[in-house]
Design a protein around this nucleic acid. Structure first.
Lengths: 258, 258
DNA sequence: CAGTATGTTGCGTATTACGCAACATATCTG
DNA sequence: CAGATATGTTGCGTAATACGCAACATACTG
């Protein structure tokens, strides 16, 4: 019985050990032999085998191509497919509402799919006659939208080339960044400042700001931001909104760390 | 100790119960209260609480916005991000090699990312002077490649419209399907036959065939197929290769069912 | 081939997970 | 609103399970 602190509910040891096995196999780039798991848990290998075998029977671990080492199994996949969207939306919706309320503009939550950003939730602007509409379910290019640039903020030239290819990027407006080198500079700026902007790079009449949401490892898992008509988001207000988005992204990031 | 069969290694009961909790929460479209989990496991609620709390402490479950119900937590996300590519590649690589050997053409494994297919592994054609090159890491449109069409085979008009929007699809060749209605017909055909073809719809000189890989629930999780120069893949050989791809896809699908 | 490493199974018992009861908090009903 | 009920959380003793040991099976190495 592992007591972390006197006031905390003790955990179920066997379940914890099973989860440690799962995490170790997930961390490994190679299939993991039982011996490594035995070293990890520090208990007798027969016990480790029974834990790992339970995970395998339930499809959380698998033996690839009849070998003896373990990799993650299809049950993890089924789990993750349910996880991706609805749970993140559940977590972030209150934050989206707060961002929309604070800025008075339409706020969106986006995740990355391939070379595109997918809007998975939004909260519409309140008290505005003219506003950017909700685009939940829509795909946008990563490279010329604030939400997209926030999602790829950590990528450098080689990674951006791998993602988008060698050819120039398609221009959507006169202001669209079309070269990988310029995009890499923009991404580095996003990384440094903690927020991204889109100054008429995708739509002529629209300015956006967005900030990356990071998980415990520092990986960017989503982005949150606002879009507004150009006239309502002058440079100074843009900066204020960017800071607000950035603060809220950080709060969400904190809630993703167990 | 739950003995399914006399010759099978017994599983660790507490770990199994924890996994059952995880699966139940993943299956639910709503946050799950402890009471429902208690009903599911059929044991005392204090024990269920301790199992669920262990999962929560480890980040596999979470309480959204301070509520008492459970949803999947960020550790599941971390697990799944490691799972997606490398494990599927590990499972499928031998099958890819076999498909390339059987057909004599370059074989690819693809997954869906948004509106695109991503090639995540390939095995190059052997004994060919001119062959389609390996495209691992490249994104392709879903709607005009065999691998892509195999990935969206189960989608109907409404889902395809949601995915691609209302506007006509961009033509890559004279033969590209550019209307959602025609694409839906093509997808229905893929679903019925068990394989997809690309007859110069993306590249003028290339024909492809591909088949969907399904998991236990019947969901399409990847596609596997070959690409060859037009001259080497006449209609009759196309059909043979399609059957070969389909057979191998089915074998992979079977290995994804614990 | 013999020795060693690694994976798997059987068995007895030490340890842990369980159930019960009490307490805390939230919700519902008249 | 007060009282009853439902639901979540904690403490404790013990029944049941998970553990370690040993044996067996399989694979690898010199």
């Amino acid at each position: 019985m592992q007591k972390k602190a006197a006031l905390e509910t003790p955990s179920i040891q066997s379940l914890g050990r099973g989860l440690s096995i799962l995490e170790a196999v997930a961390q490994s780039s190679e299939p993991v032999p039982l011996r490594n798991l035995t070293t990890l848990l520090g208990i007798d290998r027969s016990s480790v085998f029974r834990l790992a075998n339970t995970l395998k029977q339930r499809g959380f671990l698998a033996h690839p191509n009849g070998r003896k080492e373990y990799v993650l199994g299809p049950s993890v996949w089924r789990l993750s497919r349910k996880y991706g969207r609805s749970t993140l939306v559940t977590f972030c919706h209150e934050h989206l509402k707060r961002l929309a309320a604070k800025t008075g503009e339409t706020a969106h939550l986006a995740v990355r799919e391939g070379t595109q950003a997918l809007f998975i939730d939004h909260h519409a602007a309140t008290d505005q006659v003219v506003a950017v509409s909700g685009r939940t379910g829509d795909f946008m290019p990563l490279y010329c939208t604030a939400h997209g640039k926030a999602l790829i903020a950590d990528l450098e030239v080689a990674e951006l080339t791998a993602l988008f290819g060698d050819a120039p990027l398609q221009a959507h407006t006169k202001r669209t960044i079309v070269s990988i080198d310029r995009l890499a500079e923009a991404c580095a700026l996003v990384s440094a400042k903690g927020f991204a902007t889109d100054d008429r790079e995708f739509l002529e009449e629209v300015r956006c700001v967005a900030a990356p949401i990071r998980d415990r490892d520092g990986a960017i898992v989503a982005s949150i931001g606002i879009s507004a008509p150009l006239t309502r988001l002058p440079k100074k207000r843009c900066l204020i909104a960017a800071r607000q988005a950035s603060d809220i992204a950080r709060a969400i990031s904190a809630s993703l760390m167990p």
